[in-house]
């Protein structure tokens, strides 16, 4: 459909819920430009003081790993249990470590 060509671009919205926390993905919306995306994000995603800061990123500018890569990317971590503190058995006398 030709109408889709006129559709405003899609933006992904990230909101910092309060100072000290990182921005978190909350959803997406359409807007003509970045300023409008921030304004719309304010109305759509923070009507109840859910945030103190908003990021918007054009969805097409995000590069994501694909589910097909999941094994290649994340499985190697599986057999490296020595990266976790619980791998190391220490005598009970050692406290606070």
């Amino acid at each position: 459909m030709s109408a889709s060509k006129n559709e405003w671009p899609l933006w992904e919205v990230f909101v910092r819920s309060r100072q000290g926390l990182s921005h978190k993905h909350v959803g997406s919306l359409h807007a003509a430009d970045a300023t409008m995306a921030v304004n719309n994000a304010r109305d759509v995603y923070t009507r109840r003081q859910e945030g103190t800061s908003i990021w918007v990123v054009k969805a097409e500018d995000i590069t994501a790993s694909t589910p097909a890569e999941k094994d290649i990317l994340f499985d190697p971590a599986n057999d490296k249990v020595y990266r976790h503190p619980t791998f190391y058995d220490l005598p009970d006398e050692v406290k606070n470590m």
Binding site: M1, A3, S4, N6, E7, L10, G27, S28, L29
Partner: peptide
């Protein structure tokens, strides 16, 4: 926008 993640457009 949840529906759009499945590959249908808003229009």
């Amino acid at each position: 926008s949840a529906a759009e993640t499945l590959g249908i457009t808003r229009d």
